[in-house]
């Protein structure tokens, strides 16, 4: 589990959206949450990847919400400010808007939304997404093309 988790960290860093956030700290937090705190039992590798993607999404959203609260001037300790600095105010907006748009997509097309979550937050490639969702890679690609257009409209072309 540990070695798989470490390779997952590499995957996130290399493929996910967070490398522009320079978030070694976030990666480690995700790893700790996933492996040590939640202690889920994973049925198989696909299950693990799916849970990991969801965990990373939640961590980013949590940090983005913290960053937004900072901006609104809530009284916070220095420690909270340091944590919030991992995500800039601009990127907190991007993450939260994307998260909201994904939730709306999920209410209409859960498979497509999950594909976006796996790809964007988990850094999974097409074949891995197909394995998790138990569909063909053609379906994964088509879902992604459509989801991207949908998100582009929802997010006003900014992300």
């Amino acid at each position: 589990m540990r070695s798989f988790g470490v390779s997952l960290i590499t995957r996130w860093r290399d493929s996910g959206p967070i490398h522009t956030l320079q978030t070694t700290a976030l990666l480690h937090e995700a790893y700790v949450r996933l492996v040590y705190q939640s202690r889920p039992s994973f049925k198989n590798r696909s299950h693990f990847l799916a849970v990991a993607a969801k965990a990373m999404r939640q961590i980013l959203v949590d940090h983005a919400r913290t960053a937004r609260r900072q901006r609104r001037g809530a009284g916070v300790s220095k420690v909270d400010l340091d944590e919030a600095a991992l995500i800039s105010p601009e990127q907190s907006g991007v993450i939260l808007n994307l998260n909201d748009a994904l939730e709306r997509l999920a209410s209409l097309d859960s498979r497509a939304a999950q594909g976006v979550e796996l790809r964007y937050f988990g850094g999974l490639n097409q074949d891995e997404i197909a394995e998790v969702l138990k569909v063909s890679t053609v379906t994964v690609r088509r879902d992604w093309v459509f989801s991207k257009a949908w998100l582009y409209r929802e997010l006003g072309g900014v992300a």
């Binding site: 959206p17 991207k148 998100l151 072309g157």
Partner: peptide, 8 residues
């Protein structure tokens, strides 16, 4: 779709 390009 045409405009999205490398979006996200």
């Amino acid at each position: 779709h045409r405009e999205a390009g490398n979006f996200i």
